[in-house]
Each structure stands twice: as structure tokens, then as C-alpha cells.
């Protein structure tokens, strides 16, 4: 619980007053037409959509999942956030192609690129999927806000989710996309300020850079361990061996008890014992420091195993047993000794083994750099597409995407330094649902009176801008691509804006359902949503831009297969115990292969798109890649100059 003083409340009241002013001011502009309600009249200079791109990459959940990966993997975890580098390539490739096409949204672009029944079905499918996706996004953003309010005010998780997401809905209902862009701009400024302030504060609270480095060099070694749920009422032991020589580094002196359940107080005591063992060099104790034979731990819970590896910095393997040593199971291989590895951006643990394999890194580089040639290779593309189309010119669109994502990558590095500072203060937290709140804890527990209110106003700004972005985007799909296109093509402007408002409300309700499904651990869901969920359509998203022969049937079949396969491989089959929970990069490649087995045969068994349709698209958008036959035809018809 955090107490707010007068100065804190003053900041929050000022912020809410500013939001009300923007909402009322832009209410009139949003009513002019749906081009204003959804695209701000397509006349924005590059720096406005750029701040908006930055703002959409900054939500209340972002510091949570970045803290989740950096607390666990050290600076190497930052590479998880590197996927957004796709924007750097896209700014000069797919962004330009998209802006030239003049499509409002990705679904509309698809109807220019594909034709016939396949394209129509695809547009319907994507309109429906987008409505789901925006509910899903709003669900985890709402949960993030719920966790923050739980931390500050001690509220139930649902209170923060319900109150502040509903507030965002009221804002966007009144002001439309103009309000979204302006909220993004002020949020971009406010958020960058608080991110810098809190992060510097975090580094200072941990004693400054030199102190952080020297402490990490003196801390004991650790590894995370989730005790198997079926090990209850047995006795466990741990063995740590040198990965090169196989010599014992540390092992349990006797065995420790594993209970079905232990009290919360006992659990908290174990956690502080582990943290104390990490922080202090034990002169009289060596070897395994936690858990020891006196400890009783709980089956199914997560713990930090702590040991003293002396001055050795060699890699180790960690094994555990629950049957007195007749069988051992490995929980970490090629793991680090000490804590200095956390400062290394490239702390690899081998080609395929350990927590940070080279294969993982190569996968991420491919995603980040080749992804920029496609459209939709990252789910961020869909809100970015709206930003791209609201820019004044093609060049403004390019600059805005590039500058916005450069800011994002700089921002992530500033965060990471503060999260390493948090690790120095609080090592040994094993539950990701708890340590993913690291950055917020630094802000709310260490900032002085007055600044806490400023931080909360900033968090509110971040939350409202994200909520309003996705409510507006989801409503745009429901209104333009679903209602206007299929249900009532003759609808008036006023009735379209009204349908936009009703669908905003439906999205709000759907987001509460996804809040329940997601629950408390945000980091794992974000890795799924930002990365693995789109694995099966990652390659098709590139092929549609660069390869003329790829048709709507191939693309639609990839989407239909990927939706089910991704949920099955990542969530459903592991939870029912059918397959083990695989490392994320392996899930990515498995989904790429499984889906290719669907869409490649479908593409070759169906006809290419109609040539007239392709030629018209080519002349308008000028795509790059394998477009030979279409380009020749366009030249023959005199639509583009032949060279």
C-alpha cells in the first residue's frame, strides 16, 4: 500500500482535467466525418504519428513484461524487446508500399492485393479476428492496470481493470482518433519523462552504477526452480556440477522436506532467507546455501536455488532428485556461476541448451530484420498501419515509423538498467508474477512524495492512450470492415459513427473476459501475443508483399490453421499435459513448419489472383520482390514506364 499526499493528488486532478479538455475539444472534430473519426483527416506531420508509434509501443503492460525478461535473463533479456526493430526496415519498405496504396487498414489493403471470393472471405475473417485481437490486447492491458492498483491501493485485481479501462472507453467515445493521437502525444512526452526519472531513481536507489556492478560481482550464484507438483511429501536434494569436468561444485548436505502446502508466512520467510544468502558472502558456509536441510518447501511452487561457487566462474549443470539420488532430473544446463553474467548482453548458454541459446538469438534476429519486408509480421503492424495512413505524405509515414521505434529501443535500455538495480536490491524472487512488477515497485516505493502522484498520473496517461488506441482500432474494424461493408453498405456517416460507439462498448465487455483468461502472469502471455501467436502467418505476411503468385486462398488457409495451432502448441496441449512446454524459439519454428505444410499446397492447388487486379495493385503500390510477370503486363499496358 502506498499513501498519496496532497501534492500527489494535485498532479492526478490536473491530469484528469487535461483529459476532459481534450475529449470535449476533439468531440466536435470527430463528428465531422469518419475520415476524421478514424484517420484525423490524413494530414499529420511526421512527428505526431512518430510520438504516436512510440506511445502504442508503451503501455502499462510494457514495463511489466520487460521487467519479467530482464530480471530473469539480465541484459540479454532485452533482446526479447528487439522484435520491434522490424520497424527500422519496414519504414523504408512495407510502410511506403502501404501508404501509397491509400488503404485505411490492413484489411482494406488486402482487398487491393487479393481479389475474388478468397479476398472477400479473407477480409471478413480478418475483420472478425481484429475484433478478437483488440479485446485480447485490452484484456492484458487492463490486467496490468489491475496489478498496479493492487500494488498501490490494495484493491482487488478487477477494480483497477474495470475502472480505468471504462474511463478510457468514455474518453475515446467522445473524441475519436483526433483524441487518440493527442492523448498519444501528451502521453509520449509524460511517459518519457517518468520513465527517465524512475529509472535513474532505481539505479541511484541500488547505489549507482559502480555499486551495482561490484555487488553483482560479489553475489552468490542462483537458478530458478519450479518444484514438480507431484513431489509432495517426499524429500529432495540438489546437486550442482561443473559442466566441463563434471566435478561437484555444491550439493545438499542432507535432504530438505517438500510439503503439500506451507503457510504464507513460511513462504515469505523462505524468500527472504534466499535473498539474504544471495547478498552475503558466507565465510563459514560454502556449497549449497538454499534450500538447506532445515527448510521445508512446497510442491508446485517456484524457488531460487542459491549456492556459493567460490571464485570459480565456470559453467555448471544443476540436477535435483526426490528419491534419495537413485534418479536425477536436470533443471539447468550450462548455467552461470555468480551474477556478473547479468551485465552481459550476449550471455549465451550454448547452441541449443540452457536459458539463452544461440539458436534463440538467431531466431530473434530473423524475426526483427526480415519481418520489416512484410505487413503484419508483428501484431503492432495493425495500429501502426493506422498511424502510417494518417501521415501527410509517404515520406512523413517513413520518418514517423523509424523515429518512433528508435525511441522505443532507447527507452527499453533505460528500463533495463533500473531493473538490474532492482535485482541488486531484491534478488531471489522466483515467481515471475511477482518480479515482473519490479519497475513499478521502484517507482512507487522509492520516489519521494509529490513525484509518486506524477508517476501515477503518467501511468494513467499511458493506460488511457493504449486503451483508446485499441478501442478505436477495434471499432474501426467492426464499423468499416464489418458493418459498413457487409451489413449496411448505405449507412449514413452519422449512423457509422454511432455503430463505432456501440462496437467500442462491446470491445470493452470482451476485454473483461480476456482479463479473466489471462490471470496474473503477464510476461508469458505477452511473449505469446507479441511473437509466437503470429508465427504461422509470419512468412505469409512477407510473401503477400513480395511474391505475386501467393494468393488469397493460401493466405486465408495460413490464418485459419495458425489460429488453432498457436493456441494448441503454446497453451492448450501443455496445460492438458499432452506435450511439454517447449522453449519459445522452438515453438516459433514448429509453427512455421506446420503452417507451411498447409498454405503452400493450398497456394499451388488454387489459381493465382486475377491479372487485371494484380496489375492495378502493382501500378498503385509499386511493391518490391518477385513481381516479374505482373510488372511486364503493367509495362505492356503502359501503366508504368518500361526501363
Amino acid at each position: 500500500m502506498i499513501t498519496f499526499q496532497f501534492l500527489d493528488w494535485l498532479w492526478i486532478v490536473l491530469f484528469v482535467a487535461l483529459m476532459v479538455f481534450f475529449g470535449v475539444y476533439f468531440y466536435r472534430m470527430g463528428k465531422r466525418s469518419q475520415s476524421d473519426f478514424f484517420l484525423a483527416g490524413r494530414g499529420l506531420p511526421w512527428w505526431l504519428p512518430a510520438s504516436s508509434v512510440y506511445a502504442t509501443h508503451t503501455a502499462t503492460d510494457t514495463p511489466i513484461w520487460v521487467a519479467g525478461v530482464v530480471y530473469k535473463y539480465g541484459f540479454s533479456g532485452l533482446w526479447y524487446a528487439f522484435f520491434s526493430a522490424w520497424c527500422a526496415i519496414s519504414a523504408f519498405v512495407s510502410t511506403r508500399i502501404f501508404r501509397r496504396s491509400l488503404a485505411y487498414s490492413q484489411a482494406e489493403w488486402q482487398s487491393l492485393r487479393f481479389g475474388g471470393l478468397g479476398a472477400e472471405l479473407l477480409r471478413g475473417w480478418l475483420a472478425g479476428w481484429q475484433v478478437f485481437m483488440n479485446m485480447f490486447i485490452l484484456g492484458w492491458v487492463g490486467i496490468a492496470m489491475g496489478k498496479i492498483c493492487q500494488m498501490i491501493f490494495g484493491w482487488d485485481l478487477w477494480m483497477g481493470l474495470f475502472i480505468f479501462t471504462t474511463l478510457g472507453a468514455i474518453y475515446v467515445l467522445s473524441s475519436g482518433y483526433w483524441g487518440v493521437v493527442m492523448a498519444d502525444f501528451q502521453q509520449g512526452v509524460v511517459a518519457f519523462l517518468i520513465i527517465v526519472i524512475v529509472s535513474i531513481w532505481g539505479v541511484v536507489a541500488a547505489g549507482g552504477p559502480d555499486e551495482i556492478i561490484s555487488r553483482l560481482n560479489s553475489y552468490s550464484s542462483t537458478v530458478e526452480w519450479e518444484v514438480p507438483a507431484d513431489w509432495e511429501n517426499r524429500r529432495g536434494a540438489i546437486r550442482i556440477t561443473d559442466a566441463e569436468t563434471g566435478k561437484a561444485v555444491a550439493e545438499s548436505d542432507g535432504s530438505f522436506a517438500i510439503a503439500t502446502a506451507i503457510s504464507e508466512e513460511a513462504q515469505a520467510r523462505l524468500e527472504s532467507e534466499a535473498a539474504a544468502m544471495i547478498k552475503s558472502k558466507q565465510e563459514e558456509m560454502a556449497g549449497l546455501l538454499f534450500p538447506t536441510a532445515e527448510d521445508e518447501i512446497q510442491a508446485g511452487e517456484k524457488y531460487t536455488i542459491v549456492w556459493d561457487s567460490g571464485d570459480s566462474d565456470s559453467r555448471v549443470n544443476v540436477d535435483v532428485t526426490a528419491d534419495g539420488g537413485s534418479s536425477w532430473s536436470r533443471i539447468a544446463s550450462q548455467h552461470f556461476s555468480g551474477q556478473a553474467w547479468r551485465l552481459n548482453f550476449f550471455s549465451f548458454t550454448g547452441m541449443f541448451e540452457g536459458q539463452f541459446p544461440v539458436a534463440w538469438f538467431i531466431t530473434m534476429m530473423i524475426i526483427a530484420l526480415i519481418g520489416g519486408f512484410g505487413m503484419g509480421t508483428s501484431i503492432d503492424w495493425y495500429p501502426e498501419a493506422q498511424r502510417i495512413q494518417s501521415a501527410k505524405t509517404v515520406r512523413d509515414a517513413s520518418y514517423s515509423i523509424w523515429a518512433g521505434s528508435a525511441l522505443v529501443l532507447i527507452r527499453n535500455s533505460i528500463w533495463a538498467a533500473a531493473i538490474i538495480g532492482f535485482f541488486v536490491l531484491y534478488p531471489g524472487i522466483a515467481d515471475s508474477g511477482e518480479y515482473e512488477m519490479a519497475w513499478y515497485r521502484i517507482g512507487f516505493e522509492y520516489l519521494p512524495v509529490g513525484l509518486i502522484g506524477f508517476l501515477f498520473a503518467g501511468v494513467l496517461a499511458i493506460h488511457l492512450s493504449t486503451v483508446s488506441t485499441h478501442l478505436n482500432l477495434g471499432a474501426m474494424y467492426a464499423t468499416r470492415d464489418f458493418y459498413h461493408h457487409y451489413v449496411n453498405p448505405k449507412a449514413s456517416e452519422a449512423s457509422l459513427v454511432k455503430v463505432g460507439r456501440i462496437s467500442t462498448f462491446v470491445l470493452l465487455l470482451g476485454s473483461f473476459v480476456f482479463g479473466v483468461i489471462i490471470g496474473e502472469e503477464i510476461t508469458a502471455w505477452l511473449i505469446f501475443a507479441l511473437w509466437i501467436m503470429a508465427a504461422g502467418v509470419w512468412l505469409p505476411n512477407i510473401l503477400q508483399v513480395i511474391w505475386w503468385r501467393f494468393n488469397s486462398w493460401g493466405y486465408l488457409s495460413a490464418w485459419m490453421a495458425n489460429l488453432g495451432l498457436s493456441w494448441l502448441v503454446v497453451w492448450i496441449l501443455p496445460r492438458f499435459g499432452v506435450i511439454p512446454a517447449l522453449p519459445d524459439y522452438l515453438q516459433f519454428w514448429i509453427l512455421i513448419v506446420l503452417n507451411a505444410l498447409v498454405y503452400l499446397p493450398v497456394t499451388f492447388m488454387t489459381k493465382p489472383e486475377n491479372l487485371d487486379h494484380l496489375v492495378a495493385y502493382y501500378a498503385m503500390s509499386r511493391p518490391i520482390g518477385f513481381w516479374g510477370p505482373v510488372r511486364k503486363e503493367a509495362e505492356r499496358r503502359g501503366l508504368i514506364p518500361s526501363n
Partner: peptide
């Protein structure tokens, strides 16, 4: 439940698209 909602939303969109396409085809013939 999460996967089911995603599939239902997407299929509803696609069914509307199919009906729309067929209606347009009938009109043209």
C-alpha cells in the same frame, strides 16, 4: 475459451463475407 472466442469472431466475419459475395453474384447474374 480464449481460442474459441478467437475462432468464433473470425468465422462470423467470414460467414458474413460469404453471404455478401453470394448476394452480389446473384445480383450480377
Amino acid at each position: 475459451l480464449g481460442m474459441t472466442i478467437a475462432y468464433v469472431a473470425s468465422f462470423v466475419g467470414m460467414i458474413f463475407a460469404y453471404l455478401h459475395y453470394k448476394k452480389r453474384e446473384r445480383k450480377e447474374s
